[in-house]
């Protein structure tokens, strides 16, 4: 079956053990206000416009007959500066798996494995499961918000080697306010993860005054106990991509 991804990154060094290749799934049920991958939110293809390179030549407004350009009213195959790009492509799991295996071949025994990130990879869990099945001989890792039905979470996690999971905000109301969803499932899924004995790490983005408060951090600590925990410093450039997508940054 097919799924939607928006990027494949070679030489990912911060997404799990070894030199990894990370696949970014497009589409996410959360709407974290600080999200630094806004192209991962919607599952639909989107037009990305890199305005800083634009020389206002207007060529992209020329009529074209490319099917993919139609929804946007602009041609993405003409810009001399390559300012316009459609983010999000639909790929067959089998095709994607073959492509991914190529980079694994290059790296041989220095290859760490594959990481599924996004967006939220569990949002396309059927596609993800097929991909996992085709790549089962490799070390597989997921970066997830943990927001998924318990059954889905269990089925996927059981097939993986390593889990990187966010617990962003412990308080359910605040979680709803800043991410758009309830965290009950996330915490249930975390408990399953912990009980399963699967190697994992919990991540908390240190969003100023939202996640980095003492209350929040101590509450998270209470939930996760001795689970490995990584606190990610807030990236002040996180909002940069919003403008390219014609979206507004929530922070």
């Amino acid at each position: 079956m097919s799924g939607t991804i928006f990027d494949i990154k070679e030489m990912a060094v911060h997404d799990g053990p070894g030199i990894r290749t990370t696949v970014f799934f497009k589409g996410c049920p959360l709407r974290c206000r600080w999200c630094h991958n806004p192209e991962g939110l919607s599952q639909k293809p989107q037009l990305m416009f890199k305005e800083n390179r634009c020389r206002h030549c207007g060529l992209c407004y020329k009529k074209c007959d490319h099917e993919e350009c139609k929804p946007f009213g602009r041609c993405v195959h003409i810009c001399p500066q390559n300012c316009l790009e459609i983010t999000g492509k639909t790929v067959e799991a089998a095709t994607l798996a073959d492509e991914l295996k190529d980079s694994a071949k290059v790296l041989g025994n220095t290859f760490g494995g594959f990481t599924f990130s996004g967006g939220e990879p569990l949002f396309q869990y059927k596609f993800l499961l097929e991909l996992i099945d085709k790549l089962k001989n490799y070390h597989l890792c997921i970066e997830t918000s943990g927001f998924a039905q318990n059954e889905v979470f269990k089925t996927v996690i059981d097939k993986l080697d390593f889990v990187i999971m966010d617990i962003k905000i412990a308080d359910n109301d605040l979680h709803k306010e800043f991410t758009g969803v309830d965290n009950t499932r996330i915490i249930e899924n975390y408990r399953y993860l912990k009980a399963s004995g699967k190697p994992h790490i919990i991540r908390t983005p240190l969003i100023p005054n939202i996640c980095d408060t003492e209350d929040n951090l101590s509450a998270i600590k209470k939930i996760i106990g001795e689970s490995p925990w990584e606190k990610l410093p807030y990236n002040s450039l996180a909002g940069a991509k919003y403008k390219m997508l014609g979206m507004e940054y929530g922070l």
């Binding site: 030489m11 060094v13 030199i19 790296l107 220095t110």
Partner: peptide, 17 residues
Amino acid sequence: LFSDDDGIVKVGALVKN
């Protein structure tokens, strides 16, 4: 890419490769 020791080890591994 070099912000932590892990990154340094991995760049070194790429060179070795």
